[in-house]
Write a protein that binds this DNA or RNA. Structure first.
Length: 671
DNA sequence: GGTAACTGGGTTTTT
DNA sequence: CCCAGTTACC
């Protein structure tokens, strides 16, 4: 059979086999750096060449960035919608479908998508109604309730089950939790609120529906799923419902890179694909095109081997330099060592943006960030706190949501509380009176305002009146600007640095104005929040160069010529939160594997041997940390170890200096 | 007496 | 940022 030479050119034998797989369910087991994106892009191109219209190909990815990247590579010059592949995260695609057919999902067309912090807030507000106020006994807090809820949904296991296995200290509250969750769901339905989990549940329900299912299924002939090891039970159901016989199904994954169990993901779904689809063909990609052999040597000592899906990476980029393990005296030394090596690599020709510092937890880079700032090394941090989590951004988004969906009382709560003199109690009372219905909340304001303390009434009324007027504006840009104008006074009163924050929001308003609708803008911001306010200004200019700091989770799927991995001590990597269970520890190991395999040429590992707030049981008095247990003898043999000591000797203990100072001061207190 | 505002200590990972 | 405990207002 003749194939277009350009299409499969440059692919190796296995990649080609996967890209040009005829028909029937296909699983591509792709180790790190084995060209899986490339293969997936080639497969989409091949399907199109076989005559499948692009619009009938669905590409499900883990992040929106991955989807955009792949779609740009699959059809770089696609203009018409029919030439474009449908791509995005499960959540984004679900939202697109639900928004378009809100009535079919029995949702009001103005429904709003709430983010996890809204969910926590909502649960917190209703917790006391269900005997979950832990003054005497330790009742689960709002955050824990939210975790249990989403875990139940995403693993599809009942609350009692989840409590027993994952939250044993909450078992006595199972009954109350169940009631709370029932109430929570009813509340969401009653107020046009949809959380992230609902997006998946609704899509799945529609696919399973005898009437709607065939229509939704019929939209796509081929379904390509990336990072299949990180799907949860609901997502796995969606895939099965989209492709009941698997004719057009392609899944790509690597169970050694499963790092989202905490979110309900289960690599078991990857392993069970063969049971779900008896005709499954499997292709293994094991040739690594990313990393030098010396990096792969370390990676292979870390990679967990699971039955049936073994994979040993082999490279084709030459041997390279052994990873360097830098044992540092303490965290400050670690920060200096990282800076020194970043600059050294920079001197040797690696731009700052070709280097990344990957951390287990966002705060692991705190000391480093101070050091970088002091040395004038620019950096951008990914993961950790997001732009939309900043207080003023939440304020603005809440105001926008009040406009978009006046029944959204989570948003009302925040907008009301922004005003001086309004705390949780007054806000709740006002909302009680505003309760949606006919007439809507804006028309009931005259009654509700009486529930506010006298001194807050004038300002509140001004804000609400300004927001009510926004609805009458047509253009999205005008709406965004008017919402910001409505908030200006309370923002000024609340934040000492209001000027900077309002300028920030100005950019947000401008960015939102480019979206098709306020709902789309809000949902996009919730599902895929920009990592920093500078993100809104578009891609940074080419001449700007900065070091990347990222959590390992956010670094998934990415690569850099030079990678720095700090905090390789037990309690940090692996995290002390995960030490108590074998499953948790296994996930930490996979996380470390993902981190190591991000490096193309050079890898630096850092272990601060003395930590300030080290909470390990071992020899805690002196804060000495143990080298990460993942640095086995084999792993250490793959590295070159060096010791870094602080530049200054530690000062020996002296006499009672403070007493001497006090005595000297005493002589000053004579008149 | 009931609320709001302030203070100090702590923080895994995210669609 | 979030939470708990405390102080300071109405």
């Amino acid at each position: 059979m003749f194939e277009s030479p350009s299409l499969l050119d440059g692919l190796n034998e296995q990649q080609r086999q996967a890209a040009a797989h005829r028909s029937g369910p296909l699983l591509i087991l792709a180790g790190a750096g084995t060209g899986k994106t490339r293969t997936l892009v080639a497969r989409a191109a091949w399907l199109r060449e076989q005559g499948m219209p692009a619009s009938r190909i669905l590409l499900l990815t883990f992040t929106r960035r991955a989807a955009d990247d792949m779609m740009a590579r699959a059809a770089p010059r696609a203009r018409a919608a029919s030439e474009r592949i449908t791509g995005g995260t499960f959540h984004a695609i679900a939202h697109r479908i639900i928004r378009e057919h809100a009535e079919a999902f029995s949702l009001p067309p103005e429904f709003t998508v709430i983010d996890p912090s809204d969910v926590t807030g909502l649960l917190d507000a209703r917790r006391s109604d269900h005997g979950l106020v832990g003054t005497q006994r330790r009742a689960p807090r709002a955050g824990v309730c939210a975790d249990i809820y989403t875990r139940c949904v995403n693993t599809q296991r009942p609350v009692g089950d989840i409590a027993r296995t994952d939250y044993p200290w909450c078992t006595e509250f199972t009954g109350q939790l169940a009631e709370l969750f029932r109430d929570f769901v009813a509340h969401k339905r009653g107020h046009g609120l949809v959380d992230f989990d609902d997006l998946l549940l609704l899509w799945r329900a529609a696919l399973a529906d005898p009437a709607a299912g065939p229509v939704l299924r019929g939209m796509f002939d081929a379904v390509l799923v990336d990072e299949y090891q990180d799907v949860n039970a609901v997502q796995a159901d969606i895939v099965r419902l989209l492709q009941p016989d698997g004719t057009g199904l392609t899944c790509v994954g690597d169970d050694a890179q499963a790092i989202y169990a905490f979110r309900g993901a289960d690599p078991g779904h990857l392993r069970r694909l063969a049971d779900d689809y008896p005709g499954l063909s499997t292709v293994r990609l094991a040739t690594n095109y990313r990393s030098k052999q010396a990096v792969l040597r370390l990676a292979n000592t870390v990679r967990p081997q699971s039955a049936g899906l073994e994979l040993e990476l082999t490279g084709d980029r030459g041997s390279g330099a052994a990873p360097v393990l830098v044992r540092c005296h303490d965290e400050a030394t670690q920060a200096r060592e990282i800076c020194a090596r970043v600059l050294e690599a920079h001197e040797a020709g690696a731009e700052l943006r070709e280097q990344a510092v990957l951390v287990r937890a966002a705060h692991h880079s705190d000391v480093l960030e101070v050091e970088l700032a002091a040395r004038g090394i620019p950096f951008v941090k990914y993961g950790g706190l997001r732009f939309t989590e900043a207080a003023h951004v939440k304020d603005f988004l809440s105001a926008a949501r009040v406009v978009a969906n006046p029944a959204d009382d989570v948003a009302w709560f925040r907008v009301l509380r922004l005003h001086e003199g309004i705390g949780p109690v007054h806000a709740r009372r006002i909302i009680e009176i505003l309760r949606p219905g006919d007439p809507g909340p804006f028309d009931r304001w005259a009654d509700a305002v009486d529930a506010a303390p006298r001194r807050a009434r004038a300002e509140l009324t001004a804000t609400v009146a300004a927001l009510a007027k926004v609805v009458t504006l047509d253009r999205l840009g005008d709406r965004a600007a008017a919402i910001l104008a409505a908030l200006e006074a309370p923002l000024q009163a609340r934040y000492p640095d209001a000027g900077i924050r309002i300028a920030d929001l100005q950019r947000l308003a401008d960015a939102a104005a480019t979206r098709p609708s306020l709902h789309d803008a809000l949902t996009e911001l919730a599902l895929d929040p920009p990592v920093s306010s500078s993100d809104l200004a578009g891609p940074p200019r080419l001449d700007e160069d900065f070091l990347i700091i990222s959590t390992v989770h956010s670094a998934k799927g990415l690569e850099w010529p030079v990678v720095h991995l700090p905090h390789l001590v037990d309690g940090a990597v692996p995290s002390d939160m995960a030490l108590s269970s074998a499953a948790g520890l296994a996930e930490e190991r996979r996380l470390f594997y993902v981190a190591v395999t991000r490096a193309r040429d050079q890898l630096f590992l850092y272990a601060p041997l003395r930590l300030h707030h080290h909470r390990m049981a071992v020899d805690d008095r002196h804060g000495y940390a143990q080298l990460s247990r993942f640095l086995s003898p084999a792993a250490q043999a793959a590295c070159e170890a060096v010791d870094a000591v602080p530049p200054q000797p530690v000062l020996p203990r002296t006499g009672p200096l403070a007493a001497q100072v006090d005595a000297a001061l005493g002589s000053l207190w004579r008149d």
